[in-house]
Design a protein around this nucleic acid. Structure first.
Length: 504
RNA sequence: GGUCCCUUCGUCUAUCGGUUAGGACGUGAGAUUUUCAUUCUCAAAAGAGGGGUUCGAUUCCCCUAGGGACUACCA
């Protein structure tokens, strides 16, 4: 059985946008599958017809495309073990539910939700299990013909799993080791609802994982308490020999305060919790990593290190390196607070090493939003000069780069930088610099540097800051020679002459 | 309440019985500098508490405390 090809799955419920914690779970599954030359399946768990949200499925698919997490089969990817949408697998589940019923491993229950609520209200710790099922309305307590009559009359019912109490159930977790839970504390879980003829998560999950030949279930820690139930289900079906191995990942926690990271934390603290921007039906918009200016590689790298690390000091890892180095045994057991400040640092690192042409495309959009249309090679030149500045996002480049495209119109003489660098002798010195630049045939940064260095050597004048006042109007920007080359001889001299007058 | 999981700098983490407890983010200081930055250097910063086991525990065991998850005809 250990020679089976690795097959993992990511199986979200289409109830809304994909949470960033879900993204990390999917990423770990992906890394694990790729490392072992296995397959990654995308399944949609839409067994709760009440909570279905239109567009969620498409959103999830688009998110993974953006992030570079690729599936091998599943919804929208195809494959020979479909259908991959649980709502399309009704007959399959029905067959297995009937099998459990026939083997007396499950039973039919007619108690209504209202009756159960009443029970819970009267008995603090009411649980539908071996101690209580004898006093409920189910096929264990009612005559068979009455049960059949009720069903024939169209009475709604559920199928419950008959759990034998008093047994220690062991779950062998790849991250946590042996986890033991006694079956007595488990309740007789609802496996199937006649109302919508759909199974609940637990049944559908086990049947699908088995039929889709899943070898490893890598999921969030919130599933650990129900893992014993799943083990029991595999056993009930006689599938224990091919039961997948489990790995329960630590949760992503709120950056501040307590509890797990929730959808609302993002807007509250100013960072996205969704990969892509999400427009809810009620009109509210939740920000996304993509729209906020994150590079997908940075998001992947950041998420990968939240709960796992390669055991070395290396923190910048490409998808390929992650695939090679990922190891479930090295995953941490404790939940990780979501450190979005470090996430921003990852983005900065990826911006600084990103291809200028790619960044130019992003920056071009920002420029257009600010009414600037420039040739893309000019945009790329600006990005090349400025991306090493202290920016976490490309959009932060605009206030640092506006002067490339818009000449300073006014000069605030109270401005600290101008006051300090526009001294009484500045006009004469800058006039001399203008004359020097006028005489240059070659206006490249190198040629300027050569000529100006010689002039500086001869006169002792340090022209750069005053020059910056004239071309930029503030204490920011790149090397003056690079800037002047970018602006060109004509524009450089025009700005200088204008500034000379404006500052007089 | 019950069950299970977890616990090293503010945060993410390394350490798989013997280390000056390492790295990164963030923070502070200094150097470099043609502004803003970058870069470089340095600094402050941690084993929850208590018992064991052991020649020796951050590391293994137990207890306590704290945190988290689960406890639906949701996933």
């Amino acid at each position: 059985m250990e020679n089976r090809t690795v097959r993992v799955r990511f199986a979200p419920s289409p109830t809304g946008p994909l949470h960033i914690g879900g993204v990390r779970t999917a990423l770990y599954n992906y890394l694990f599958a790729r490392q072992h030359g296995g397959k990654m399946v995308f399944r949609i768990e839409d067994t709760d017809s009440q909570r279905f949200v239109p567009g969620a499925e498409e959103y999830i698919i688009e998110s993974f495309k953006w992030l570079g997490i690729e599936f091998d089969e599943g919804v929208s990817y195809g494959g020979d073990k479909g259908p991959y949408r649980q709502s399309e697998r009704r007959e399959i589940y029905k067959k297995y539910v009937d099998q459990l019923l026939a083997e007396d491993k499950a039973y039919i229950a007619f108690d209504t939700p209202e009756e159960l609520d009443a029970k819970r209200a009267e008995k603090e710790n009411f649980q539908y299990d071996a101690t209580t099922r004898g006093e409920m309305r189910n096929s264990l307590t009612m005559p068979a013909d009455e049960v059949q009559a009720l069903i024939a009359a169209g009475t709604q019912y559920v199928v419950r799993f008959k759990i034998q109490p008093g047994e220690d159930i062991h779950v062998d977790d790849m991250i946590r080791g042996d986890v033991k839970i006694n079956s007595t504390i488990l309740d007789d879980k609802v496996l199937y609802k006649s109302a919508d003829q759909l199974p609940t998560y637990h049944l559908a999950n086990i049947v699908d994982d088995h039929l889709m030949e899943i070898t490893h279930v890598i999921r969030g820690e919130e599933w650990l308490p129900s893992a014993p139930l799943h083990v029991l289900l595999y056993r009930a079906f006689g599938w224990q020999d091919t039961m997948p191995r489990f790995a329960h990942l630590p949760l992503l926690l709120k950056p501040d305060g307590k509890g797990k990271l929730s959808k609302r934390d993002g807007d509250r603290l100013g960072f996205p919790v969704f990969p892509l921007e999400w427009h809810a039906a009620d009109g509210t918009i939740s920000s996304g990593y993509r729209e906020s200016g994150y590079l997908p590689e940075a998001v992947v790298n950041f998420l990968a290190l939240l709960g796992w690390n390669p055991g070395t000091d290396q923190e910048i890892l490409s998808m390929q390196e992650l695939i090679e180095q990922f190891d479930l045994a090295k995953c941490s057991k404790a939940g990780a607070k979501f450190d979005y400040v470090k996430g921003q640092w990852f983005n900065r690192e990826y911006i600084q090493s990103a291809d200028n042409a790619v960044l130019a495309q992003d920056f071009d959009k920002i420029l257009r939003e600010n009414g600037i249309e420039a040739p893309i090679e000019k945009v790329e030149a600006v990005v090349a000069m400025m991306k090493m500045k202290k920016i976490n996002f490309i959009k932060e480049l605009w206030p640092l780069c506006d002067f490339f495209f818009i000449a300073p119109q006014t000069f605030d003489k109270e401005d600290k930088f101008i006051r300090k660098n526009w001294k009484d002798n500045a006009p004469q010195e800058m006039q001399a610099l203008i004359e020097l630049l006028e005489g240059l045939e070659d206006f490249s940064a190198d040629a300027q540097r050569k000529a100006i260095d010689a002039w500086v050597e001869a006169t002792g004048v340090k022209p750069w800051n005053a020059w910056r006042v004239m071309l930029v109007g503030a204490g920011k920007g790149p090397d003056m020679h690079d800037l002047a080359e970018f602006l060109g001889k004509e524009e450089t001299l025009r700005r200088m002459r204008f500034a000379l007058e404006a500052l007089a």
